[in-house]
Design a protein around this nucleic acid. Structure first.
Length: 873
RNA sequence: GAGCCGUUAGUUCAGUGGGAGAACGCUUGCUUGACAGGCAAGAGGUCACUGGUUCGAAUCCAGUACGGCUCACCA
């Protein structure tokens, strides 16, 4: 084994071993209890980012843990066709090739899109492999594959028949760049510095005008009314009168509606029912005409008169100029307002009158809300996200699900060419030549919403996987897609399987750069997880992702942290190297840890049991950050800095039996530790586990450690405490006095009682190794030698005669400082104990602890004081 | 406008009723038979602020300030 850990060798070796050995494939039958996770399917558009790496690392930790705990673990992989995003990418590629989807036609385009999908799916699988994810590829699914398409049609038809899916003409969010409708949540609102345009619309009879204002002047071409508040005294007399719409010349009425805010602007509003959701509503109430003034590309149409052919922004510029010239537009105000942008294309979203398909959300939301009051609700971790989720559900509006794209699930609706009659069903009507299928496809999220059950064979409820693995146990995802995905899976799951689709939802945050900024293409601050792996290994990246935060919080990326985690891997590597160099062929069946053991052996075994218990508990609570810290400190501090150093005593000694025992303990501790760490750092733990004495084919398939109380030993812990405090004091003195470790110094220890006397005698060999004393005496009758440094410990006093090195005044000063510290402690404890409220009301064990502390501090202070006096005389 | 989160060592973050923690960074020393990407010893914090509850608050409650996020409105 090389002295330096090289993750490349290790990490390329084990993944094929695991997949060839089918360690990640769920059994799908048998006695084991199933445990299920479905991956949030990444888009087939391209590269995985650090967010994916984080998300999947968390899932892999759970999956590997559960597999080791004896569950029939299914972690189901898959990808999402990602309609708009993928279509845009494929179209971009076609453009480079000098063609377009229109030239290829629908069929030809879809062929290209499927080619793209195959290529990128492969790429994504390679990235998963580099991450070390324990996915069951035998069950991989794709949102557009046949089974999932069946599920989509089943859901669509079912909701349609129930009246919960409908088609109609409404104002929707239109993206003029990609030329498709969007749902409400696919619109990002951004504060934009715009203008507020004030206009005068003349009354028809020439008796004056009414002032209106708008941020989108081009919509005035589609105005069909002006509205005022019915109780607005300024305008009462104008209600019912007619104004002439400037430029257009259309006569429109002044109507009254209490939607109008009298305080805002002039108190009069121009109404454009075809281009604004509120105006649309008002139009319905007052039976107003709807005049659409632009086409699907955002280009002004024939209703815009002489502006026809200009795009919406050019039109705005020209129209403002013309209106100013006419004196209609008399004021332009600076105005910041939020403007909707397409989440995908970034285009300014146009509220647009259009015929689309919708899901009626109220009844579905109602069921989902009701679920959260029941025992078998979805548990959000951390639970504050349940509030976010419920708030959204309570205020939900109908979901626009049709998209004007080709890459997706085509809407299963057919229209009769002659009669216009509509047919909705799983298949086309029997005489297909007379019918035309709806051109549009469904929102990608419509199929993603079915993911937890459509991937398992639903709507065939007899599918063995569906019966065994659904509902799933936990879903892991970022808070940014609670609305897009989590909520939709819940209401669809409830509606179609009568069950929550997952018991827990583990929510994590976003990965940010070192300055806390979101990683984005435009900032160029993104980090490719594959680069991180190439430089430091997947284990280092995974450890970073697992331990950086607590659930629900964002994570800042720092290269230094990744590097530190590589150091950790290297530490593990070298500790194992040491162990293996000293195993001398120990076999798994030779490991024997019962019977007589050293203090160090008993202590590390005790610490191991504690660690097993804590790690298991924390894992179950998804507290991976704590798990990481615990294992880091156990391995680095307890195993490496203390245990291995102490075990060198027997290992380098002559006592064969003692050697053999320490080998056993060391092998056992490391083997168990590799199991504990395996879910987080699968590669290095497999590599080391395979080198160590072991049984079985892979640590992946090893059982999860269980704490064994018979291996816990309180005496060893107490011994270690005292020994550590002595060693610590000696090292401290050596450092202060500049006495290098290789130089011997005499050491005199005065135990307080016989118990401590025995403890120190038991640990004598350790003290000799760690303190390098010339002479070591342990004697309760000791008196302090002249010119010595002294330390007062709990249970013992320590003297180091350092004549020639010691400066008496400095030593006195040091002890004075020590005394001051003790004074403070004594004061604090006594203040507490003299408080009657405390003694009466605090739990007994707390009071008892304080009393013991008081005793200890008082004794120490007394000894320190005595020592100071000695030195002063 | 409503809601949520954060504010703890130089930095990044844990801790969530009983003596302030980790990692990295910093200082000093060390070729100690696994590791110098290591070992050892240190320095460093009125736990944002103000009240309250409590025998006891970094921890619970209310409010304030600053930073951030989400939703809604925006003619």
């Amino acid at each position: 084994m090389p002295t330096k850990y090289d993750p490349k060798d290790t990490e390329t070796k084990w993944y094929p071993y695991w997949t060839n050995g089918k360690f990640f494939e769920a059994e799908g039958k048998g006695e084991k209890e199933p445990f299920t996770i479905v991956i949030p399917p990444p888009n087939v558009t391209g590269r995985l980012h650090l967010g994916h790496a984080w998300d999947t690392t968390l899932q892999d930790i759970i999956s590997r843990l559960k597999r080791m705990q004896g569950y029939d673990m299914l972690w189901l992989p898959g990808m999402d066709h990602a309609g708009i995003a993928t279509q845009a990418k494929v179209e971009g590629k076609l453009k480079e090739e000098g063609t377009s989807r229109y030239e290829l036609g629908r069929e030809g385009f879809l062929e290209k899109a499927w080619d793209w999908k195959e290529e990128y799916a492969d790429f994504i699988r390679q990235q998963w492999a580099k991450m070390g994810l324990s996915l069951d590829y035998s069950r991989e699914r794709f949102t557009l594959d046949e089974g999932l398409s069946t599920a989509v049609r089943e859901v669509f038809v079912s909701l349609y028949n129930k009246g919960w899916i409908y088609r109609g003409q409404y104002i929707i969010n239109w993206d003029p760049d990609t030329q498709t409708a969007l749902s409400d949540i696919e619109v990002d609102y951004k504060e934009v510095q715009g203008h507020f345009y004030h206009m005068k619309y003349p009354l028809k009879d020439g008796s004056g005008h009414i002032e209106v204002a708008t941020t989108r002047p081009e919509t005035m071409l589609g105005d069909t009314a002006v509205a005022v508040h019915p109780e607005d005294e300024r305008y009462n007399h104008l209600i019912g009168r007619t104004v002439v719409l400037p430029i257009v010349g259309r006569e429109i009425e002044i109507i009254a509606d209490d939607y109008v805010d009298m305080e805002f602007g002039s108190g009069a509003v121009k109404i454009t029912p075809a281009h604004d959701p509120n105006d649309f509503e008002m139009g319905n109430r007052h039976d107003l005409e709807r005049v659409l003034v632009m086409d699907e590309a955002g280009t002004m149409n024939e209703n815009a008169g002489r502006y026809k052919g200009l795009n919406r922004f050019e039109c705005r510029t020209q129209l403002v100029k013309d209106l100013q010239d006419d004196g209609v537009l008399f004021d332009i105000e600076e105005h910041t307002h939020s403007v909707g942008h397409s989440e995908r294309s970034g285009a300014v979203v146009e509220p647009y009158l259009s015929t689309q398909w919708f899901v009626k959300m109220k009844p579905l939301a109602k069921q989902a809300i009701a679920l959260q009051h029941k025992e078998d609700k979805v548990h959000f971790v951390p639970d504050r996200f349940e509030k976010t989720y419920l708030h959204w559900l309570e205020n939900i509006r109908d979901w626009c699900i049709s998209r004007q794209l080709w890459w997706g699930h085509r809407i299963p609706a057919w229209y009769h060419k002659e009669t216009g009659e509509m047919h909705v069903g799983h298949t086309a009507p029997s005489n297909p030549e007379e019918w035309e299928q709806d051109e549009d496809v469904l929102d990608t999220w419509f199929s993603s919403a079915l993911w937890p059950f459509s991937t398992m064979g639903w709507p065939n409820k007899e599918n063995p996987d569906f019966k065994r693995f659904y509902p799933t146990n936990v879903l892991v995802t970022g808070y940014d897609i609670i609305f897009f995905w989590v909520s939709r899976m819940i209401f669809q799951g409830l509606e179609f399987t009568n069950e929550r689709p997952f018991k827990d939802v583990l929510i994590h945050g976003l990965v940010r750069d070192a300055e806390g900024r979101k990683m984005s293409k435009s900032l160029g601050n993104g980090v490719d997880p594959m680069d991180v792996i190439d430089r430091y290994g997947a284990d280092a990246l995974r450890f970073f992702l697992a331990t950086g935060t607590t659930p629900g919080n964002d994570l800042r990326f720092h290269w230094e942290k990744i590097e530190a985690n590589w150091n950790f891997a290297n530490k593990i590597w070298n500790a194992s190297r040491f162990a293996l160099m000293n195993m001398s062929g120990l076999r798994y069946e030779d490991i024997y840890i019962d019977g007589e053991k050293t203090i160090a052996d008993r202590w590390i075994l005790t610490r191991l049991q504690e660690t097993i218990r804590d790690v298991t508990r924390l894992m179950d609570n998804y507290e991976f950050g704590e798990v990481g810290r615990l294992l880091y400190n156990f391995i680095w501090d307890d195993v490496c800095d203390w245990y291995i150093e102490m075990a060198k005593l027997p290992l380098y000694g002559d006592d064969e039996a003692a050697k053999q025992k320490s080998r056993s303990v060391l092998a056992h501790v490391l083997e168990q530790t590799m199991r504990l760490l395996h879910p987080i750092m699968p590669f290095i733990t497999e590599e080391i586990w395979q080198h160590l004495p072991h049984t079985g084919d892979s640590v992946t398939a090893a059982s999860w450690p269980e704490a064994d109380r018979t291996l816990e030993d309180a005496e060893s812990v107490e011994d270690m405490e005292l020994l550590k405090s002595v060693i610590h004091a000696v090292r401290n003195t050596r450092a202060e006095m500049n006495v290098i470790p290789s130089k011997e110094i005499d050491l005199q220890i005065k135990p307080q009682t016989e118990a401590e006397q025995l403890q120190l005698e038991r640990g004598r060999s350790y003290l000799e190794r760690f303190c390098n004393p010339g002479q070591l005496s342990i004697d309760s009758a000791l008196t302090a030698p002249e010119k010595s440094v002294s330390h007062v410990l709990s249970g013992a006093e320590l003297y180091m005669p350092l004549a020639g090195l010691i400066d008496l005044q400095e030593e006195i000063a040091r002890l004075e400082k020590e005394k001051e510290k003790l004074d403070k402690e004594v004061e604090r404890v006594q203040k507490k104990l003299s408080n009657e409220g405390f003694v009466q009301k605090a739990p007994d064990h707390v009071v008892q602890e304080e009393r013991e502390k008081e005793k200890d501090y008082l004794e120490k202070r007394e000894k320190v004081t005595a020592r100071i006096q000695e030195l002063q005389t």
